[in-house]
Simulated scan of single mutants.
Amino acid sequence: MQLPAGPGEARENSIAVARRAVELGVTLIDTAYLYGWGANEELLVEALHPFPDGVLVTTKVGVVPPDPPREAALCGRPEVLREQVEGALRRLRVDRLDLLQLHRVDPDVPLDDQVGTLRDLRDEGKIGHIGLSEVTVAQLERAREIVDIASVQNRYNLLDREHEAVLDACTAAGIAFLPWRPVLPATTAGEIAAVAAEAGATAAQVALAWLLGRSPVVLPIPGTSSIEHLEENAAAASLRLSDGQRSRLDTVRRRV
């Protein structure tokens, strides 16, 4: 989402960031139709296609472009989801979307219809695995009655643990949990900064390391448009927090 897809130097930088991510061992790249209305998907194709073995590019559907004065809106109507999946297949130049996530649940369309459409597309061979984003435990449970759910992408970080129960449900079920905004609003003050100083790391690295140790199903998806920041994020994978440091971070209160 953070990679500019317009022409010129910014696009060249975005391509370099995507390629460097793969060099660093990143194996999942998250995009969505919403990110530039397909432009971000096309950028990743220019940077990485044919996608290297072991690299999963996952995208999301269920949001429609702005219609002034309305901004982007949710739309989970079956015909729209089908159209957007077909568009993603074309833009990403693949025969199957190995992981396709519903960007948001549209409250105006029955959940069964939205998830059922993705199930049908999976059965048709156009989707490999199905994920959800910004869902409750109840929505996740209902979706799992319709089709296997491989991943959940909810906002979650050290200071924002609103979806703790969803993460716990994913852990119990062995469902991948992809926290978005995983390092924000990580702070440079207080306990996080103290642990960072002890570990010789940045606050962002501490936030990512805490997430990676929170549950074996957690796979953070930090975004960046900077190679330097990308390398900093990737280095967090090797940061090991002590039990005492984790315990102190566990007590950090969510910022309201």
Rank of each mutant, 00 (worst) to 15 (best):
M1N: 15
M1S: 15
A5G: 13
G6Y: 14
G6P: 06
P7A: 15
P7Y: 14
I15C: 13
A18K: 13
A18P: 13
R19V: 14
V22E: 10
E23M: 09
L24A: 14
T27Q: 12
D30E: 05
Y35N: 06
E41W: 05
L44R: 04
L44K: 04
V45S: 01
E46C: 10
A47G: 12
A47C: 13
L48M: 10
D67M: 10
P68W: 04
E71M: 14
A72I: 09
A72C: 11
A72H: 11
A73F: 11
E79Y: 06
E79K: 10
E83N: 13
G87F: 05
L89S: 08
R90M: 12
R91D: 10
L97K: 05
L99W: 02
L100M: 15
L100T: 10
H103R: 03
L111V: 02
D113G: 00
D113S: 09
Q114P: 00
G116Y: 02
T117R: 00
D123G: 03
H129L: 03
G131K: 00
E134Y: 12
V135G: 03
L140I: 05
R142C: 00
R144K: 01
I146G: 01
I149C: 11
Y156F: 15
R161C: 06
E162N: 13
D168P: 00
T171W: 02
A173K: 09
I175Q: 07
I175E: 10
A176R: 12
L178T: 13
P179K: 09
W180N: 13
A186C: 14
E191H: 10
A196P: 09
G200C: 08
G200P: 07
A201G: 05
T202W: 07
T202G: 12
A204H: 09
W210M: 02
G213E: 15
G213W: 06
P216F: 11
L219I: 12
I221C: 04
P222A: 02
S226E: 08
S226C: 02
I227L: 02
H229V: 13
E231I: 03
E231D: 12
A235S: 06
S238G: 03
L239H: 00
S242C: 00
Q245F: 02
Q245K: 03
S247P: 00
R248I: 06
D250Y: 02
R253S: 14
R255T: 15
